[in-house]
Design a binder for these strands. Structure first.
Lengths: 218, 218
DNA sequence: GGAATAGTGTCTATAAGACAATATCCA
DNA sequence: TGGATATTGTCTTATAGACACTATTCC
């Protein structure tokens, strides 16, 4: 689960129980768990349920990343995992923090990648970050990291944070507005300066695809 | 497993045993099977092993498509499947056909999608075709459908078959050569007319990514 | 009016598409 | 030489990037 907070891309980690009977005690891990064949109609449902249990957030943007299987990834034996990633606005999370705040926390992705995570979660996280950064180049994914209505300057800033480089304002606006995946949602007064137009996504389920990547001049 | 034969994109299907004790008897299905925790170090290894058992082909291009899970996809109960797709040159297959030819065959993807496949394989196939067609717009994937060395006209024809539309020759060549993902491999005499330069992929493991899709003028 | 931010316009470089022209093989 | 195909070149056009300019708010 990713968000953008304090000008950085952050990922949610949970601490494994320190019980020595459990694998990887005390390590930070990606939130997850086992399928409940009684309650989960699909793998995506299971992921949504797990996220809801850990964070209280419902129906964020969710995308399947891939699956990993092997004999060595869990000390208990051959196992498979189905990895999803979710994008949430940071405001949504602020409401729900509290219950078990001690063992759930946000980390900047660079810092998280330097930790030794439980199981093969370091590899899963690296893969998720790579997928996200790659898709940001040609999709509207960062819009899922913002509360609606959002402004174009806020969206641009989100792109710049995830991409790690500045983006030209004029070209950015043309690209976003030409895509026609947002609709106007009234003016949003800023804290300073001219108020900006607010926008909302037409389709909250899947991102728009652009015909080119950013910064491919011509 | 996809290939291009007779001017069409084709998919390999296997016939389920007609034994009524088995699920979906007599139906056509995507090749697959169960993980062997003794022999398969990973999910990809398992997929390669299964393909080799069914077709004799080794190490084609393989990419994970996604995973599906649920209570209803297999009559035997809650199950998950890990779906991969492979691209192979049709010549490679011709060598290996024979053993159990009756229950393994190629079908044009459009015809295959009109069949009622076993389990949820219709959905898996549709998803794989969509992924492939989408990635062909901005990657060098079709090169994995050709035997090396291949010529640019042959590659262009492969693109056109998968995309289902013609592509401009000049723009196509510029795009392929600028990508620098191929290297020259000597002249290949054609059956008629001027011989063409042969090329081979620099990296047989992953496709090159283009900064734009086809036919996005400008 | 001035500071700050939002939004627009103009120019240019680049690359894709269209299509004509040339090159090289074989019979 | 002629037919067939491969390869290159030229022209046009669309658009992204650079960057300057205008607009709107609050003090």
């Amino acid at each position: 689960m990713f968000t953008v907070r304090d000008g950085a891309l952050q990922v949610l980690l949970v601490k494994r129980p320190s019980d020595d009977a459990e694998p990887c005690p005390g390590r930070w891990a990606l939130p997850g768990g086992f399928v409940d064949v009684k309650r989960d109609a699909s793998l995506g449902d299971c992921a949504l349920r797990k996220l809801h249990e850990k964070t209280g957030v419902v129906t964020p943007y969710l995308e399947q990343l891939g699956s990993w299987g092997g004999a060595t990834r869990d000390p208990r034996g051959w196992s498979t995992t189905h990895c999803f990633y979710a994008l949430v606005p940071s405001q949504a999370m602020a409401l729900h923090k509290g219950a078990n705040a001690a063992d759930v926390d946000w980390f900047e992705v660079d810092a998280a990648q330097r930790k030794r995570l439980a199981f093969d979660h370091g590899e899963l996280l690296a893969s998720a970050v790579a997928r996200l950064r790659s898709k940001v180049e040609y999709t509207s994914l960062p819009a899922f990291l913002l509360e609606e209505p959002f402004t174009l300057p806020a969206l641009q800033q989100t792109y710049e944070i995830v991409l790690g480089r500045p983006v030209d304002k004029s070209a950015f606006r043309k690209r976003m507005l030409d895509g026609e995946f947002m609709e106007e949602a009234g003016q949003v007064p800023g804290i300073l300066g001219r108020p900006a137009m607010g926008y909302r996504l037409r389709d909250r389920a899947r991102p728009a695809l652009f015909p080119r990547t950013f910064n491919a001049p011509g």
